[in-house]
């Protein structure tokens, strides 16, 4: 008797390859890595740019993390929770994964919010509370814009120091948006070469930044950041 052929779709309803879904549910590290890479952009956008929510009948706005460290902390915590066995089993594979993941990310943020409310309870009759509570004070501001412009200037100055070949690589990668593989094809190089050159250029940019900051009087253009952080640290 001829064996019945197996029927297995290349993709599951949620859009993942079927093998990825199976591996995800089993906790296979390779599958988890694939899921991370497929979805990290969506969660990053939420954590970077914020969202609105209601608490105790009031409207609030989380404006997003500007600090790279805080954003990465929240991102890490989101995926760490999402990859726990119970969370993996709770995902049915039929519905899209992004909303599920974004819900976890929101909860990560809101846990911080609730902790802050406990630390700073409102006095009875206090009518001064704003309608929107800002969890992270990084709303666009003149200072924020100035810092961004300053950094763009530093990067432009760095780019001006590079030879044409390096500028071409960076243009392909970050202006035209090519992947490393496509950039490698375009330049007739191997992907590993592109990866290595890119890492060296990133390090060169950091070296340029360190020299710039060391050359600035007391690092005055950015020292406000560390000082503010130190003050915040002292107040913890």
């Amino acid at each position: 008797m001829q064996e019945e052929p197996r029927l297995e779709s290349p993709r599951s309803p949620c859009g993942w390859p079927t093998a990825t879904l199976r591996g995800f549910r089993a906790g296979d590290p390779a599958a988890l890595r694939e899921v991370y890479r497929l979805h990290v952009g969506d969660v990053t956008g939420l954590l970077r740019h914020g969202f609105s929510f209601e608490s105790a009948g009031r409207a609030h706005r989380f404006v997003g993390y500007d600090s790279a460290f805080e954003l990465q902390d929240a991102l890490h915590e989101t995926f760490r929770r999402a990859f726990e066995p119970a969370a993996r089993q709770a995902f049915d594979g039929i519905r899209p994964y992004t909303p599920y993941l974004r819900m976890i990310a929101r909860n990560v943020v809101l846990r911080t919010f609730r902790a802050q409310r406990e630390m700073f309870p409102l006095a009875d009759g206090d009518t001064a509370e704003p309608d929107a509570i800002v969890l992270v004070d990084t709303e666009p501001s003149a200072e924020h814009d100035a810092l961004a412009r300053e950094m763009q200037g530093i990067v432009r100055a760095f780019l001006d120091t590079l030879p044409a070949a390096d500028r071409e690589l960076l243009t392909l990668r970050f202006v035209e948006g090519l992947s490393q593989r496509d950039a490698a094809d375009s330049l007739g190089l191997g992907r590993q070469q592109i990866r290595g050159r890119e890492a060296k250029l990133r390090q060169a940019l950091l070296d340029h930044l360190h020299r710039h900051d060391a050359g600035t009087t007391l690092g005055a253009t950015w020292i406000a950041g560390p000082i503010a952080a130190l003050i915040a640290e002292a107040l913890r």
């Binding site: 600090s67 790279a68 950091l206």
Partner: peptide
């Protein structure tokens, strides 16, 4: 703070 500043540079790049 130093890490955040470096990350800003990467974002600008």
């Amino acid at each position: 703070a130093s890490y955040d500043r470096g990350a800003r540079a990467m974002r600008a790049l």
